[in-house]
Design a protein around this nucleic acid. Structure first.
Length: 410
RNA sequence: GCCGGGGUAGGGUAGCGGUUAUCCUGUAGCCCUGUGGAGGCUACGAUCCGAGUUCGAUUCUCGGUCCCGGCCCCA
């Protein structure tokens, strides 16, 4: 019986994997140069970690299971909660801020479609311990830089939840969340009807619509006209100035909402072309989550990049790895092993393990598109040298191992 | 959870009630036991799964499953 891979998972062939690793290494290098340190958390966690953070509602999309000790566990659906858990468990004594990053697979039981899988990879960063706009700005600038480093130009939307929360402060939490939902979806009609239904004051309705429609230059002063001087606005203004200093291109969007209340301040999203319905490649913001897991009120900010969506639109090509094929005759196999071992200290080497004859070894080298073949036959062994053959031109010559390496590495 | 389009060798395809299931490519080998790429030959290899209709199903019907796209959702 033939077994296929589970729905929403993917096999990555050697070429796919090489490209993924290539892109990953570029992104990794960028964050590392920004002073971020990689961490790894468990693939599964206690289910509570995620329900505490996001509410029971997420269970429908979680891969949960009970282990033999009757523990309720879950494959991680995201990494922010695990990172915060890790911080609370074992990093609270460290000097702040912590600048961390991760690159891990996550699991969600969702309907697969373009850019959405049940096992997917997230590349993200979390800055723990600073509530300054400087932290927010750094994180956004870093996100932009990472995308740019792999050739993706995203459309960055930056907002601040403090402003709309201020307008809605008189309403009960339930209503606030519903309104945020409409705002996030840009569903003006639905929003209007809902505000009508709950009999919201006229002034509040106007404020919401005005705020959400703000765009372009002078966003801050326009917002000030609506809500007056707010400390949140002041900090947001600082953030925008810092983004200018970083040279980040962004548009202000007070309509970015998040369903979850632990997002408190700055929020941002980055969209890219070529992904159909799933065009968001990065999302992030400032949040207060640590107190949920038994730590103090430590402010954090971070983002996650959907790595698979990046791969979908990324045009990069991996540098091809050229293997040197060592070809031997039946009576020089052991000498060939010796030569191969020496070559392997410098370059990737392929040695026949099919007991092919000389001709077929060469033919196979051609099939695998080898650049160079090193021939180790009786003649070579006697001369204490090897024959280096360049496959594309067919040229070959008797040289020493050192000379061959010289030519190959050129 | 909802809607639409799909599934024939490893990859790409033809057949659309009865075929030895087509062709290309691939892989292994031979022609050709120290020189590859061309050509010829040989071998390997497929109707997604299950049920129904039928004398007979790859073909028609239903269910499942997986893939692709969209909706919902998106921590």
């Amino acid at each position: 019986m033939k077994i296929s891979k589970p729905r929403g998972t993917r096999d990555f062939l050697p070429e796919d994997t090489a490209l993924r690793r290539h892109v990953e290494s570029i992104m990794r290098q960028v964050v590392t140069h920004w002073g971020y340190h990689e961490i790894i958390t468990p693939t599964f966690e206690h289910l509570d970690l995620f329900t505490l953070k996001s509410g029971e509602g997420i269970i429908g999309e979680i891969y949960k299971f009970t282990d033999k000790g009757n523990r309720d566990l879950s494959l991680r659906p995201e990494l922010t909660a695990p990172v915060m858990r890790m911080y609370v468990n074992e990093m609270q004594a460290r000097p702040l801020p912590l600048k961390l990053f991760y690159f891990e697979n996550c699991f969600r039981y969702e309907r697969p479609q373009k850019g959405r899988f049940r096992e997917f990879w997230q590349f993200g960063v979390e800055v723990i311990g600073s509530k300054s706009p400087h932290a927010d700005a750094e994180v956004i600038a870093l996100a932009e830089q990472i995308l740019e480093s792999v050739g993706i130009k995203g459309d960055i939307h930056v907002g601040h939840l403090g402003i709309i929360r201020h307008i809605l402060r008189e309403l009960e939490g339930e209503k606030q969340n519903k309104i945020m939902r409409f705002v996030d979806k840009k569903d003006d009609k639905g929003l209007d009807e809902y505000l009508e239904a709950i009999n919201a004051p006229i002034e509040l309705r106007e404020q919401i619509f005005e705020l959400v429609s703000i765009s372009g230059e002078n966003a801050i002063s326009k917002a000030k006209e609506i809500v007056g001087d707010l400390p949140e606005l002041e900090s947001f203004e600082k953030l925008l100035n810092l983004l200018d200093a970083y040279g980040v291109n962004y548009s202000v969007d007070f309509g970015i909402a998040r369903g979850l209340d632990y997002y408190t301040g700055m929020v941002f999203e980055i969209y890219a072309e070529g992904l159909g319905a799933q065009n968001q490649v990065c999302g992030g913001g400032a949040y207060q989550l640590i107190h949920l897991f038994g730590g103090g009120d430590v402010p954090s900010t971070g983002f996650g990049i959907g790595f698979d969506r990046i791969m979908e639109i990324c045009k990069l090509q991996p540098k091809p790895i050229q293997e040197v094929v060592v070809v031997a005759t039946d009576d020089t196999r052991s000498e060939a092993i010796d030569i191969a071992s020496q070559l392997r200290q410098h370059v990737p080497v392929y040695l026949d393990i099919m007991e092919r004859n000389f001709r077929n070894q060469l033919s196979h080298a051609n099939n695998m598109k080898a650049d160079y073949v090193v021939i180790v036959g009786k003649k070579e062994v006697e001369a204490g040298k090897i024959t280096l053959k360049e496959m594309s031109s067919g040229e070959q010559g008797l040289v020493t191992l050192e000379e061959a390496l010289e030519l190959i590495k050129r």
